[in-house]
Nucleic acid binder design. Structure first.
Lengths: 102, 102
DNA sequence: TCTCAATATTGACATTGTCAACATCAATAT
DNA sequence: ATATTGATGTTGACAATGTCAATATTGAGA
């Protein structure tokens, strides 16, 4: 029932990006913040599965100004999503406490 | 190429337990430190897969003093294992920086 | 040697991670 | 008008990881 690692990272990316959280941006954020290089497809599949679990939601955003192409799909966390993320964080902090690298 | 979450937790448990890192002990550690309740089978499968990847190694430990039963299999990290764990930690720290819960 | 308690292993399936290939769509060049 | 193009999203398929019930191994003592 707990979050996979990429799921966690993806949710974090969504939080950081705020209103600009769509596919390619999330992909970049993953690469920059976590050095995790994945395809866009991976990003979408991950987010869609999180949406099925009710942890994120999304809406289409009409392409702005003079930019062509398909509409962006922008993601944001749901309340359950925030809860899940909070737990993940608490665990992450507890886990490393007192561990010393040789 | 990166560690799954349970893999990470299991390695941490091994580190914490030192010379006492065998199946049941690891299982308990997972429950106590990370509130992650899994079966022993899960613990073994995870550790065996990590061993195949060269991140941990193990040896049998003859049952001590007057205790019956099968020999324990005690795990410890390999140098690669320490590296992987170090990276995981660095990433974990970088990731949460600047994230505020609403 | 039979049972028992402690431990490990197997087999099978669910979830998550991953990407190449393909599909959509609005602007603009032809 | 319509063909092209650039930006974006979606599918299908398979690999890796997570998970456990059931089963096997082993040494001490009854």
């Amino acid at each position: 029932m707990s979050l996979g690692e990429l799921q966690q990272l993806a949710m974090l990316a969504v939080v950081r990006l705020g209103s600009g959280a769509y596919g390619a941006a999330i992909q970049d954020e993953l690469a920059n913040v976590a050095s995790r290089r994945v395809s866009v497809a991976t990003v979408y599949v991950t987010l869609v599965r999180l949406e099925e679990r009710g942890l994120v939601r999304s809406k289409e955003e009409r392409p702005p100004d003079g930019r062509g192409g398909r509409a962006r799909r922008v993601f944001e966390l749901t309340p359950s999503g925030w809860d899940a993320l909070g737990e993940a964080r608490a665990t992450a902090e507890r886990i490393w406490r007192g561990v010393v690298q040789p």
